[in-house]
Nucleic acid binder design. Structure first.
Length: 332
DNA sequence: ATGGTTTTTACTGCGTC
DNA sequence: GACGCGGTAAAAACCAT
């Protein structure tokens, strides 16, 4: 499950400016869910019902696809190739509590033709059902999973996170369950933590505040549970890279590619000089975006950046001074 | 629990449009 | 005069111990 399978792009990326204008014109009748943003450029995501995809209006990134299963995604150009590629059955997925592989036995005492069963058969079916049920939702764990995965899905949608993040979150939750981390902790809290962790690991981090926004538990609990889960599962999540926040902020502020690039440069430079350490990555990113806007003569205000990054203006000021110092300490 | 560090809140002064 | 910006002090939040 490489990143590449999810990084498909459609022709929507052509002209950034016209795309945005069109979008503004049809402001009221857009069908996209509010808050669904592109993980790469933070542009608004528009649903394309016909193709069953959600596409970023800015860069054309396909954020979500296959709402409708339209058959094989591959094409075969000769018989041999077809044999190679061919496979059967729905793809398994970690977002269903039993990976979509369970069997369901009908509750009616009828055979496949609708005729009712004899007494012997009925007994047999009852036994089968009983056992099947025991396996399917083997114990409370499985039922937990079912609920948690629903929550994960809900939150990921609300945050506009791509499918691979959901998958990752699901996997983490599974592991948490297997290692008996749940007792004493709420399903909500743990699943929220999984989403948070998964987003960070996928390089499309959301701040704790953003996460808490869509979760049903308080930020404190999410933070606590998150630490716990990471520690126990010894997930290796590096401290969030400030650069990863830049695209989202930059595009929310409608800044040019140039500024975005500049902001990343500033951050990279600062990183080498070790200016950051103990400073919040989000703050750094916000400051870099602001500083970059200044350097490229684009109008933005500290207030605006503060708004989209959810960081106080004071922090932005402090950080961006440091960033600029580090910069001409090297360049000049 | 505690102490050190970072972030936020609130307020004030300065220059400009 | 409102706005953007900078600075400061004190409170709050955060983190490691």
């Amino acid at each position: 499950m490489s990143e590449h399978t999810h990084t498909r792009r459609r022709s929507g990326g052509r002209d950034r400016r016209t795309a945005r204008e069109q979008q503004d014109e049809t402001e009221q009748e857009r069908t996209d869910d509010e808050g669904l943003v592109c993980p790469e450029c933070s542009g608004n995501v528009i649903r394309d019902e016909e193709h069953g995809e959600a596409v970023c209006a800015e860069c054309g990134l396909v954020v979500e696809e296959d709402s409708v299963d339209r058959g094989p995604e591959w094409r075969a150009f000769d018989a041999a190739e077809k044999d190679q590629k061919s496979r059967v059955g729905a793809p398994t997925t970690n977002t269903m509590h039993d990976k979509g592989l369970s069997t369901n036995i009908d509750w009616r005492d009828q055979d496949a033709y609708g005729r009712s069963l004899g007494a012997r058969q009925r007994q047999k079916m009852r036994r089968l059902r009983k056992w099947n049920e025991r396996f399917r939702t083997r114990d409370s764990k499985e039922r937990n999973l079912k609920q948690a995965l629903g929550e994960i899905d809900r939150m990921a949608s609300a945050l506009g996170l791509p499918d691979n993040v959901r998958e990752t979150a699901s996997v983490i939750y599974r592991r948490a369950l297997d290692e008996d981390l749940l007792p004493g902790r709420s399903i909500e809290g743990v699943s929220t933590s999984c989403v948070y962790a998964a987003a960070r690991m996928a390089g499309v981090p959301r701040s704790l505040d953003e996460i808490a926004e869509v979760s049903r538990v308080e930020k404190e609990e999410v933070a606590r549970t998150y630490r716990y889960v990471v520690r126990e599962l010894k997930l290796e999540v590096k401290p969030a890279d400030p650069e990863q926040y830049v695209p989202r902020f930059a595009s929310s502020l409608e800044l040019s590619e140039e500024s975005e690039l500049r902001a990343k440069q500033l951050l990279r430079n600062a990183k080498e000089k070790g200016v950051h350490s103990g400073k919040s990555p989000v703050g750094l990113a916000a400051a870099a975006v602001y500083a970059a806007a200044l350097l490229t003569n684009e109008k933005t205000t500290q207030a605006a950046v503060s708004e989209v990054a959810d960081i106080s203006e004071v922090t932005i000021r402090n950080r961006y001074h440091e960033l600029l110092e580090a910069e001409d300490g090297l360049v000049a």
